[in-house]
């Protein structure tokens, strides 16, 4: 297999270059002194300074961070309940409906989800008087709805990988279902909860289309501000902002991968030690 892999390697590395070339260009251009973004005139970090004094961007970033934090946390709770019910309850009323609905937001075109949620909020406001207007509440409800799908999928696959033997043993020994869940299930699915939260946070922080539909005047999230800036043309500040976001995400992914690899090696060592002990 190894011999013929040269052509495969070339094709694959071309694919990776395709993925990274635009990102790398953007990072380099963020240090360009010229306002004409794509004409190089010298190295300068000045756009980062300007970025830190741009109140519009900073304000929008704060709104986005707040909404992403709350949405991701609520989505982890709801998504874990959904994932747990789907993989651990043999049957319950509405299982088919939950199975279908929990993954549907992942593939639903965003323009449809956004429009549908906005029309719902408008109808609810005129019928029930809640939610009043559109802003933080409507943004959070919408983000939770599509983020919980990610959490449910991650939790469900994690639970499917573990058999329920330990949980059953605890139940047999008289532990109540709630205690079994808190003491056994939760610690075992903790990694899935962490990745579900991170995924939800990122997806919520990045969302443009659904947010544009459901937010009201005065509540512009960061992607909405970037979108309106980009529509007017490329701007060196956006390059700087993008670079900062890529660096943060990059560090996160590297740490996560490194940690996963470390745990993997640790488990392998333990397994070898256990095998040697036998």
């Amino acid at each position: 297999m190894r011999r013929r892999s040269t052509s495969l390697k070339v094709l694959a590395l071309t694919g990776f270059a395709f993925l990274y070339l635009p990102i790398l260009t953007m990072v380099v251009l963020s240090f360009n002194e010229s306002r004409l973004v794509t004409v190089w005139s010298g190295f300068s970090p000045k756009w980062y300074g300007e970025l830190l004094h741009d109140d519009q961007i900073l304000g929008a970033a704060m709104i986005s961070l707040k909404i992403a934090f709350i949405s991701a946390s609520l989505a982890v709770v709801l998504g874990t309940l959904a994932g747990f019910a789907l993989s651990r309850f043999p049957k319950f009323r509405g299982k088919v409906a939950l199975t279908g609905m929990v993954s549907a937001p992942l593939v639903m075109p965003e323009v449809i989800t956004g429009l549908a949620l906005l029309l719902l909020f408008v109808a609810m406001e005129s019928l029930l008087g809640w939610p009043k207007g559109r802003g933080v509440v409507t943004l959070i409800i919408s983000h939770v709805t599509f983020c919980m799908a990610y959490v449910a999928v991650v939790v469900q696959s994690r639970l499917a990988d573990m058999d329920g033997v330990i949980e059953e043993a605890a139940l047999d020994l008289g532990a109540r279902p709630w205690r079994v869940f808190v003491d056994i299930t939760l610690p075992m699915i903790a990694p899935a909860l962490v990745s579900g939260w991170l995924l939800s946070f990122t997806v919520s922080f990045d969302d443009l289309v659904i947010s544009a539909f459901v937010s009201g005047p005065g509540y512009s999230t960061l992607p909405m501000v970037i979108f309106s800036k980009v529509r007017l043309g490329v701007s060196p500040e956006v390059n700087a902002l993008a670079t900062m976001m890529i660096v943060v995400v990059g560090i996160g992914v590297v740490l996560f991968t490194w940690n996963a690899a470390r745990l993997h090696r640790m488990r392998q060592r333990e397994e070898r030690a256990a095998a040697a002990g036998l």
């Binding site: 990102i23 922080f205 990045d206 443009l208 992607p223 979108f227 980009v230 490329v234 993008a242 995400v249």
Partner: peptide, 8 residues
């Protein structure tokens, strides 16, 4: 990373 920024 943000879809918007990758398009950008």
């Amino acid at each position: 990373t943000s879809l918007l920024l990758r398009v950008y």
